[in-house]
Write a protein that binds this DNA or RNA. Structure first.
Length: 827
RNA sequence: GCGAGAAUGGUGAAAUUGGCAAACACACUGGACUUAGAAUCCAGCGCCGAGAGGUUUGGGGGUUCAAGUCCCCCUUUUCGCACCA
């Protein structure tokens, strides 16, 4: 074999082999258990960077490992190809988004192939293809007909810079998640998916999913934000047929209500302030608050302000008049937009009452306020406790009061138990050109869905891309004006939020060319759910929640049987890069312009080195600040393996069989070292700790270099070398495949069974026992495995160094941990 | 403020149930080979100390024969949520 590790030739050779022989093509089969491993598909931004390499290397290691473990592996890839950057590039460089996207895909496909990832390329999808988005449109129409899609005019998050609407999930700190521009409120007609219908099921899963990181589950739980409370009606004093309804999670404090606060956007504000002497002032206040930007209203030091409306509501139990305030901190979009204020037991109400000199009433007693009276309060007492000053509800605890008050109010039609979510319906309309057209039409008869036989509604590509603001699609008359069932019609010109496409691609991969429906249920049910999903933590809420939602839509349409799309989730840490300007490390991304292209590394060291290096640098879940220090180390290791095989070549191609029964002491060392490595690799794979798996291969390599052969060593050397090559395959598949072939094997290494360890050979015959005196290591000695505690203690007591430390002392205690240590405690 | 995680040599990091801290690498130092370099190989490498030895996992306390690991308090830091009534 060649003395030199010629990675360029080797990598080209095997990539060609894999592609021509379609080695990684996946077909359903009953002979093997299936395993679906998936990495989040990329947005085709132009070039892959080390963050991609990390993500896809992790997935590829799993795919290759599982293939060798005898699984029928599905490992697909595709392109999340609609989205804003293509439009920005179009504006900037005058290239049509379709052309820009296509050329990026071609480039990135080439780069991914250069990395040697074992994808089934026959299943590649691009979301921009009408054969893909056609089914998304169909699903949308089906959901529309089912009542799970609706249109409403609403105040939406608007990014002026991106010229489009944003979902709540896409607003970060009051700013656009893409461009960081300030988000404004705008009244627009929008299409919504009724994700709230599935809130309970989406939440339920977060409480029982073992294969997902707790971090992601708790974020989703938090986002869904389910709470239990009651809705309570407070009739208006001026007109008892009208009332203000509040939502509260603390109905036990009902008797402590001393005022009410309502949001400035509340529909009754106008009526309530009609008799206020300072009506003009209040109106101005309301207008000011409405104009305030979301980011300002969320600010930490946002001043709580309010005005008395001069109107009163009646307490539902006592019928006492309760003053109604308009307050700028009451959210219009949560609950009913109105709050029953209990200043003694809610911090916000407490501050508000202090500021406007509103009375308070203490109705809950607990440990912390046992000996306090209201005048001692410096803050609200918000814990649960026992009711006081609450008339008929006195002495009840929280649960009793919750129930009794609900029963009381329900019997009088003044309230009812209610569940509230923070999660809102998913607004999916985007005023963008480069997206999937929403397949709806407006005719003289009203809003109608496109006929399913007429799908797809194709995004017209034949356009001059020269518009810099507004929705381009809206200006294309030939698209806009059409007919529907013989009637003149105007098409909806908004497009889907691109999170729609990424919400079901994992399912489409199971039957990507199926043209009789969104999925072929047979194939979908063979492959789904995804056994291992891998991607960035930044998708913890949006993508992973939407995909789970879509999966339930697909399930309820009968396409899939399982309830959840992704059984196990691995959230890999970000690859960051230090920025001289900010003095901080930031996530590697095209938009920040801090990417490191792996092409150089591949050119200089090969793809195997690049993959090995990124996996060796840190465990997958940890963030990794980019530095190429250490690339050479991984390269050096592969060279060492290459030379080792060359050096031991004659032994490694022997036809002698290993005989574990006639092992001599010397050769047992190789067998034990090899089995220890296999065992270690298995446990590393269970935890995704590829860095330590690689370290254990390095250890075996080092051991084999220093091993002194005897006349019987040959078959054991062969055993060790072949094992090493097999274990290396998931990490450095080109080199491993080449070595495997060099060693005389004609079958593809991809399906060679992954080495199994023999338990009895994972343990040495002797173990080093540490001798401690008073917990400090003083000496050590090799003793036979499983020596008795007595033997170990005697060995320690006979050790001259130990004796030195025992001299003149009284032995209090002798502790022996089998195969580990002896600790002599002296005084 | 609330919730979850993290903190170990010059660097990336490792360490089943509490049981030899620093595996495996990078960088560095010295040496071999070489006209020289590259590559490779050998040796050293937490800190203090010439050495014996002492000491070390963000800081402080505790439990234990024994703590990076368990408990309490604190600091720093990352992420998420943040008027959700």
């Amino acid at each position: 074999m060649n003395e030199k590790y010629n990675f360029t030739a080797i990598e080209e050779k095997w990539q060609k082999h894999w592609e021509e022989k379609k080695i990684y093509k996946a077909e359903p089969s009953k002979e093997k258990p299936k395993y679906y491993v998936l990495e989040m598909f990329p947005y085709p931004s132009g070039n892959i960077h080390m963050g991609h390499v990390r993500n896809y290397a992790i997935g590829d290691v799993i795919a290759r490992y599982k293939r060798m473990k005898g699984f029928n592996v599905l490992h697909p890839i595709g392109w999340d190809a609609f989205g804003l950057p293509a439009e920005n590039a179009a504006i900037k460089h005058g290239i049509h988004p379709a052309i820009w996207t296509k050329s990026n895909i071609n480039n990135m496909r080439k780069q991914l192939k250069m990395c040697g990832f074992s994808y089934d390329w026959d299943r590649e999808v691009a979301t921009t293809h009408p054969d893909y988005y056609k089914w998304e449109q169909e699903l949308f129409i089906k959901m529309y007909k089912k009542g799970l899609v609706y249109k409403k005019s609403s105040n939406v998050n608007w990014c002026e810079h991106c010229n489009t609407v944003l979902a709540n999930e896409q607003v970060e700190d009051g700013s656009c998640w893409r461009c960081s521009n300030e988000v404004e409120q705008k009244e627009l007609d929008q299409w919504f998916y009724k994700i709230t219908d599935y809130a309970d099921e989406l939440l339920d899963f977060t409480n029982k999913l073992p294969g997902w990181p707790e971090r992601v589950l708790s974020q989703q739980r938090n986002w869904i934000g389910k709470s239990f409370g009651q809705k309570i009606k407070f009739p208006l004093e001026s007109d008892k047929t009208k009332y203000i309804e509040v939502y509260t999670t603390r109905p036990d404090t009902l008797m402590g209500v001393t005022f009410m606060s309502i949001a400035p956007e509340h529909p009754l504000t106008k009526e309530l302030i009609s008799n206020a002497p300072n009506r003009a002032e209040i109106e101005a206040f309301i207008e000011d608050v409405k104009k305030e930007k979301a980011i300002d209203r969320q600010a930490e030091n946002y001043e709580k302000k309010g005005f008395f409306t001069s109107s009163y509501a009646l307490h539902p139990v006592t019928e006492e008049p309760i003053p109604i305030y308009i307050a700028n901190f009451v959210l219009a979009t949560y609950g009913t937009g109105a709050v029953m204020a209990v200043p003694a037991h809610d911090q916000r109400d407490f501050e508000f009452a202090k500021k406007y000199k509103i009375s308070m009433k203490e109705v809950i007693k607990g440990e912390a306020n046992r000996d306090k009276t209201l005048s001692d309060y410096t803050e609200a007492f918000t814990e649960k406790g026992t009711l006081v000053n609450s008339g008929q509800f006195d002495d009840l605890n929280f649960d009793e009061a919750f129930n009794d008050i609900a029963v009381y109010l329900e019997s009088r039609s003044l309230g009812y138990r209610a569940v509230q979510y923070k999660l809102r319906d998913w607004g999916i309309s985007r005023q963008r050109y480069w997206g999937v057209p929403i397949p709806m039409l407006y005719t003289e008869d009203g809003t109608e869905a496109a006929n399913i036989e007429e799908l797809p509604v194709i995004l017209p590509l034949d356009v001059e891309y020269n518009i810099t603001s507004g929705n381009l699609l809206d200006t294309i008359e030939s698209f806009k004006n059409t007919t529907h069932n013989g009637k003149p019609a105007k098409r909806e010109t908004d497009t889907f939020d691109t999170f729609n496409e990424s919400s079901w691609y994992y399912a489409r991969y199971t039957s990507p060319r199926f043209d009789d429906g969104i999925l072929n249920p047979e194939e979908a049910n063979y492959w789904l759910p995804v056994d291992q999903y891998i991607g960035g933590i930044e998708h913890a809420i949006m993508h992973l929640l939407y995909a789970r939602f879509f999966h339930k839509l697909l399930r309820d349409e009968g396409y899939v049987d399982c309830n959840e799309p992704f059984t196990n989730l691995l959230t890999q840490g970000m690859v960051t890069k230090f920025d001289e300007k900010t003095g901080r490390a930031a996530k590697m991304s095209k938009s920040l312009g801090n990417t490191v292209d792996p092409t150089e590394i591949i050119k200089n060291y090969g793809a195997d080195t690049a993959r090995l290096f990124i996996l060796f640098a840190a465990p997958p879940e940890r963030d990794l600040e980019w530095s190429d220090n250490g690339v050479e180390g991984s390269f050096r290791f592969l060279n060492r393996v290459w030379r080792l095989v060359g050096q031991k070549f004659q032994q490694a191609i022997t036809t002698q069989q290993v005989d574990f029964n006639s092992l001599n002491q010397n050769n047992k060392k190789i067998v034990v070292a090899t089995n220890k490595m296999i065992k270690k690799i298995h446990s590393c794979f269970d935890e995704f700790h590829y860095n330590t798996a690689i370290a254990s291969m390095m250890e075996l390599t080092n051991m084999l270099y220093s091993f002194e052969e005897d006349s019987e060593s040959t078959p054991y050397i062969k055993y060790a070398i072949e094992t090493l090559v097999c274990c290396l395959n998931p990490f450095a598949p080109h080199m491993a495949s080449e070595l495997w072939q060099e060693l005389g094997h004609s079958e593809d290494l991809d399906f060679v069974p992954f080495p199994q360890y023999i338990e009895k050979f994972t343990i040495d015959d002797t173990v080093t026992i540490v001798f401690q005196v008073n917990g400090k290591v003083r000496s050590k000695e090799d003793l036979p495995l499983n020596s008795t505690q007595e033997e170990a203690i005697n060995a320690a007591l006979n050790d001259p160094i130990v004796q030195k430390y025992l001299d003149g002392k009284e032995i209090i205690k002798k502790i022996s941990v089998p195969n580990k240590l002896v600790n002599i405690v002296v005084k």
